[in-house]
Design a protein around this nucleic acid. Sequence first.
RNA 1: GCGGAUGUGGUGAAAUGGCAGACACGCUAGACUUAGGAUCUAGUGCCGUAAGGUGUGGAGGUUCAAGUCCUCUCAUCCGCACCA
Length: 631
Amino acid sequence: MNQYYFKITHYADELLADLKKLEGGWPKQVLTMQENWIGKSYGLEFKFSFDAASHERLSGNFDGFEVFTTRPDTIYGVSYAALAPEHEIVSYMIQNSLLDDNTREQIESMKNASSIDRQKEKSGVALNLSVVHPLTKKSVPVWVANFVLMDYGSGAVMAVPAHDDRDFEFAKKYSLPINAVIKPFNGEADNTKAFTEVGELFASEQFNGLNSKEAQAKIIEHFEALGIGTKKTNFKLKDWGVSRQRYWGAPIPFVHCDDCGLVMEKKANLPIALPEDIVITGEGNPLDKHPTWKHCKCPSCGKNALRETDTMDTFVESSWYFLRFCASPQNWEDKAFSAEQIKYWMGVDHYIGGIEHAILHLLYARFFTKVFRDLGYVSFDEPFDRLLTQGMVLKDGAKMSKSKGNTVDPDAIIEKYGADTARLFILFAAPPTQELEWNDSAVEGAYRFIKRFYERSSNIVKTDSMPQIDHGSLSKDEKFARKKVYEALVRANDVYVEKYTFNTMIAGVMEAMNALNAQSNSAVWSEAYWILTSIMEPVIPHVCSEISSNYFSLKNLTSQRVLDEVFVQESITLGVSINGKARTEIEVSPDASNDVIIAAAKESAAKWLEGQTIVKEIVVPKKLVNIVIKG
RNA sequence: GCGGAUGUGGUGAAAUGGCAGACACGCUAGACUUAGGAUCUAGUGCCGUAAGGUGUGGAGGUUCAAGUCCUCUCAUCCGCACCA
């Protein structure tokens, strides 16, 4: 079946290299997953040539096959070569009856095994063909092996059982020779398993004594000098097959013409719209079955032709929707997006989604961005500056999903407690990046907080501007309450801009409320609500906007300035520890000298210092004093 | 196998190398109450009457000081997986 592909492999190198640009903004896990998915590796590619007898057996149709290895240093340990069951030479032999029935059946069953079954046990069969070792010229038998994959490299490998786990397992099973050529730097290899680490070469002619790394480079050079092999980079990333036999996707704009073949649809006819009068039966492609839709004229010769009924993978559309979001609706008919608007809105500052998009969607979107850049539509390399992967919500240890039937309906909480409580509860439970086992026992707590928050707003004095307070005239409790309010503000700024740990911001607001409760200055209460309703408004919008509209005419719902004066303290408390163990506390003036602090600490900790020799005294400003004693 | 993450009270969780457990939930006791699944007050890591000891999966290390840094290790979860 013919399929349509996007040549994402053309961008493999850049997609890999630009992951560096995303470091810091994207979770490391996602970067690593993409790196592994792209799967770049270096090695040697060379051709195994058939010996004369094998060449003749294949009627001269094949003179050999290419193999790729990342371990050219093990080349002298080759004891067989293996082809994928799907390899063209194998297919040729089957088609031309060059294999006996038993061999043929074994190969067929390898091909038909599911990929999981195929991984369970190594199996293979000899083809009665031989190739020539490119350096030693010795004869090497050719096998078919189920662990060789047709869609990576050339679908054929050189096998070195002494230094590769898979080759070893296979060689053991079929009693093939195991020739060690690398030994550990210290001591001898354990020959009951493959030695796959870096080591020192032996039995390798002029390369003896080199370490694996040096040998890899030297042996590749040697192959290139002889003109029998080349340095090669391989990728696991494959081209993106985009054709689907479904209704729900953008039609692929090609036309099949009896005379002209496969022809691209004319630009003027784009976009090709889906028909709306289709019947979805669950069988086959509804577009193919539609009575008229697929009949069209050939864009090249004008004769009757058939439209392609395959549609595109929906990932195609999700790869650029964010650019479309930047386009104003009045231009939608004219073009997909305008460069000017893209320039204004892009890139996406914060992109939020589940980890399940780590590879496909996020890689495809990066790919599209690079293609659009090369076509001149956008001027940046990467679409998403920062990525937040939200944690999954689990229920009874499993991911919540409709198919499992273990979902929790937030409507029940919203109905009983209101939407503000539902939001507060969820945001307070854990940071958003974290996986969370759903447990709604703390909903009551969130509800109580909101109730208290609303009730105590009665302490506010109505005002249209931020209350002015003479900090110096306040009592200790009032000063403390103010300090807590501003600490919550500082934390909120950090959370909204940088950290997204909303749970700690909410905790800060709760602390401020607890401190406010210990005093009754209405100006302090008013200022506190002016600030707190502003920072909590995104979390509990209904309550905050009601309080704000009742008392502040909504004037406070904007960014708030931090006043440094509230953080100035008359005295500070320092912990005193002996040999790092917390013992007591002292209260000193914030500008007390180290000498004064140490003297106070010694006095306070006299009980533990009696008869001891003090070795060292450490003062950590505004935090603690550590006294080190001998013994 | 490779890669990534996580591991802290009864529970959810805090903690720029600087007094572990902030903030909540729960629990215990008390107050108010006809009532309490409302509200308020106090307590709450563990052992101990206390003084004190001990404590962030485990074992080492660096440091005056480690949940945090380093080495090794165990467990759980996630992703990729015979990638030559």
